[in-house]
């Protein structure tokens, strides 16, 4: 029988394990990065878990909402977390995975006036909202007022379309967009975990590629 040891590894052990997988240089880049995730639903909760697993140094988590029973089919929360703020629930889940990650959680609604303050420390910002208008607001605010930062946004991941139609595209040097560009939730189409996760994985991978200095053409 295996002996179960429920002791959380020390920080240097976890960093060594990450370096073993990513190499020391790449891991240094991941560990020193600050990434903001705006919206902690199907996209944001999955992006955050990918990034925490990759050993990103600090995540800024922003969402105003609480975990709802209708979120559990695609968002990285547990039934026991229904009713609590997503910022709190996700912080809890992320710390179980990556106990030494630095987390800054803001339980607020992002708008044009508070975005600069909330996101000031971030090198890369992930747009992970669900409403099209909020997506456009964040994209325009970041690109107009924070041109030194990277924005990784998402558009089009509803429905049962092919996994292969989800793509990452570079719009301009600091603006990437993931998704199929067209599948809209407001058309009454389903929103399924696998396709939302694909899009979230595209976003998380784009963040890691930017940090690795690998850019789309």
């Amino acid at each position: 029988m295996w002996e179960v040891v429920n002791v959380i590894p020390a920080k240097d052990e976890m960093i060594k394990a990450l370096e073993k997988r990513h190499g020391k240089e790449l891991q240094n880049r991941f560990s020193s990065a600050v990434v903001a995730v705006c919206g902690l639903g199907g996209l944001g909760s999955n992006i955050s878990i990918c990034l925490a697993r990759a050993g990103i140094g600090k995540l800024i988590l922003v969402d105003f909402d609480r975990v709802d029973i209708t979120n559990l089919h695609r968002q990285q929360y547990k039934a026991s977390q229904i009713g609590i703020y997503k910022t709190e629930a996700l912080s809890e889940n992320l710390r179980e995975i990556a106990p030494y990650i630095e987390l800054e959680a803001h339980t607020v609604c992002v708008n044009e006036s508070n975005a600069a303050q909330l996101l000031k420390e971030a090198d890369i910002i992930c747009e992970a909202f669900d409403k099209a208008e909020a997506k456009a607001m964040l994209a325009n605010t970041v690109l107009e007022t924070m041109p030194e930062k990277f924005l990784v946004a998402a558009s089009g991941m509803a429905g049962m379309g092919s996994a292969n139609s989800i793509k990452t595209r570079k719009v301009i040097k600091n603006f990437y967009i993931c998704g199929d560009g067209v599948s809209d939730i407001s058309d009454g189409t389903a929103l399924v975990s696998s396709r939302v996760m694909l899009c979230a994985a595209h976003q998380a991978h784009t963040v890691l590629r930017i940090l690795a200095n690998e850019f789309e053409t």
Partner: peptide, 8 residues
């Protein structure tokens, strides 16, 4: 022109 659609 990037036109966002809903879902996330």
């Amino acid at each position: 022109i990037v036109s966002f659609v809903g879902g996330g």
